[in-house]
Design a protein around this nucleic acid. Sequence first.
DNA 1: CGACTAATTGAGTCGCTTCAATAAGCGTGG
DNA 2: CCACGCTTATTGAAGCGACTCAATTAGTCG
Lengths: 245, 245
Amino acid sequence: MPQTTAQLSARPSGDRHCEHCVVKGRAICAALEPDVRDALGREGRIQTVPRGRTLVWEGEDALLVANVIEGVLKLSTSTSDGREQIVGVVYPSDFIGRPFGERSQHSVTALIDSRVCLFPRGAFDRFAHSHPELEHRLLERALDELDRARRWMLLLGRKSATEKVASFLLEMSSRLAEAGCQPNQPLDTFELPLDRQQIADVLGLTIETVSRQLSAMRASGVIELPGRRALHIVDRSRLVALAGD
Amino acid sequence: MPQTTAQLSARPSGDRHCEHCVVKGRAICAALEPDVRDALGREGRIQTVPRGRTLVWEGEDALLVANVIEGVLKLSTSTSDGREQIVGVVYPSDFIGRPFGERSQHSVTALIDSRVCLFPRGAFDRFAHSHPELEHRLLERALDELDRARRWMLLLGRKSATEKVASFLLEMSSRLAEAGCQPNQPLDTFELPLDRQQIADVLGLTIETVSRQLSAMRASGVIELPGRRALHIVDRSRLVALAGD
DNA sequence: CGACTAATTGAGTCGCTTCAATAAGCGTGG
DNA sequence: CCACGCTTATTGAAGCGACTCAATTAGTCG
């Protein structure tokens, strides 16, 4: 049974000043002068979100927005008969939620234990509306997300299982590296924040197909799988070739 | 051989005042006071785009943005070996282009003869940056497009061929109705602006599969296909059921 | 160490694709 | 106006990639 967010440990983010926030330089807040940023900060609260907990449900009223401080979360939608598609994965400094909209089109669920800086949507909307520099930053982010979503549509519609899995591993590697503040320095060894079923839900495949593709890549020496969620890229250039674009 | 946009008939949109523009109430310009809107209008020009002509190429510098006045255009990306995916279809009053970005991630090509109101990106960016109400409108549009793209990802990743084709016909019907200014009044008979190959490229299918699905729907009396590009929805509720969501 | 869950592997099936041939639209010119 | 030819769409047959169902193995945590 899903727990509501009300029971989560939460405290005004004012306690831990924005000044010390690890994502203050990369999140949308970076567009604001420190004093304005702190004013926004007082509208929000830091909240921990344990793995598996859902922050927002598909189709529900979109009552909140948030910045990701730590962790990884998925955005997902489902068909009425239960087929799921993960439509986005968000990392530290990313923005969650649908400002200026009534309903959320997708659920937001933590893939690993996470921390977010949470705002009531109404308060956030008002703040954004009176701070064009924040809206500008939101716009740039939305446009980037749109480009990313459209690139993913090419993968979903036109790529083979091998290409999908290879593309996924490369994307995961670079996004984790970015979020870990080592830009342009791709990570070759990391923990996958998703299990096999979730990888399948990102790629529009089944769990068995994902597993077979990973096994084949291991057999050919492109990757190693030291643990259930561990990944080591042995031959990046060959992985890039497998990604087929 | 592709023609460049330079040879197109073009004139300052100032000639035909924004005041008389058929999409002035629905395009992003609607956010602006008439005099401000006219100032923006003087930065742009009306341009006709015949069917098949490409306005922006994938990977090229994003030198222009535009409002669609009339017609239908596709946004598309391809893999290096030529597989194509249509990632968006735009209609009158929709916005084209990537403000505040260097490169376009996808091509923009007219599906039928179209007319757009074209702006050099630099001039548009400067104008937007100094008019928060315009940026707000752009933001709302970008967020709507993002929601739409993500719903489409569910279709691409998780739906069957039948569900894909049914969903496509319904989406086309309602988008054409909206663009034709009869909201909430779904169109049951219309011309498809896409040929079979393009429908396949939207849905991540082959031309033959699209054709077979349409034939099956015709055989079961759900639709009629009076001409190559003509469509008549006979039983909308059954079509909705086939769309599977 | 043992029990439980997650992942892998195998065998068989199905849906979509591929390749090939036919038919239907549609514009053109006689 | 109709015959012709070209393009686009439809239909058929065969193949294959991913899925389904089932059994086995490997991690992980108490």
